[in-house]
Design a protein around this nucleic acid. Sequence first.
DNA 1: ATGTCTCAGGGACTGAGA
Length: 266
Amino acid sequence: MKLASWNVNSLRVRLPHVLDWLGSARPSVLGIQETKLTDDKFPSSELQAAGYHVVFAGQPTYNGVALLVDASIFQAPSDIQVNNPLFPDDQIRLVTATLTPVAQGVAIRVICAYVPNGSEVGSDKYAYKLRWLDALAVWVRAEAQRHPALAVMGDFNIAPEDRDVHDPEAWREKVLCSSAERERLQTLCACGLTDAFRLAEQPANLYSWWDYREAAFRRNRGLRIDLILLSQALANACRGSGIDTAPRKLERPSDHAPVWVECALG
DNA sequence: ATGTCTCAGGGACTGAGA
């Protein structure tokens, strides 16, 4: 079973890239962020034709999240939850579902998250980001107790450690890297979750996001801000993880690359 | 390099968000 997450920065623009990647990488579950689509415009038929169940929640212009679920592996998603029930929010940044295998095996709970960017340390948007993360941790703690096999994946807009940053000194205490943000991520992980990327050795300087400006991708001036957090039960079943930079090299790419983990589906 | 990309409004370009 392969779980993956990708901030596509407009699913309308990026649908061809997503369909190509579904075909080549064949993720069992793909969490998508920044669909930037209202629900009436979601490309359900194209994605269903590729063999995926679709769960989506969008709004005009900004944000929006979705889950694509391989219909040959999982039944139709159930217990769907949009946003955090503990945090009333005009912005749609979370979609959650329970996925039950078609064959034998345990159901998994998957949370797809688009964490607020935060704009700049000290700004109103930054304060909203911290409040949003505080509320997420409270809710995820409850979800983890209800669902032993839990994955929380998405664009966290937080680089967990300095080794996830191309130039840690330039980013010191800047948004995406500040101590307060990293502490929120640690609190979230204290719910019993592990950053799957660090379960095994990884190449140095492997990132998931590069600014469109300054030729950042060509110079590999990136950050690893897209994460897949696994509960103990799933972490024990993890067989590998990585970041696929190939889609970032295409014409008109998203600024993010898809991240993935492989788990033995028990 | 204030360097790019996407979206809405409006019907060419500007501003916001990232």
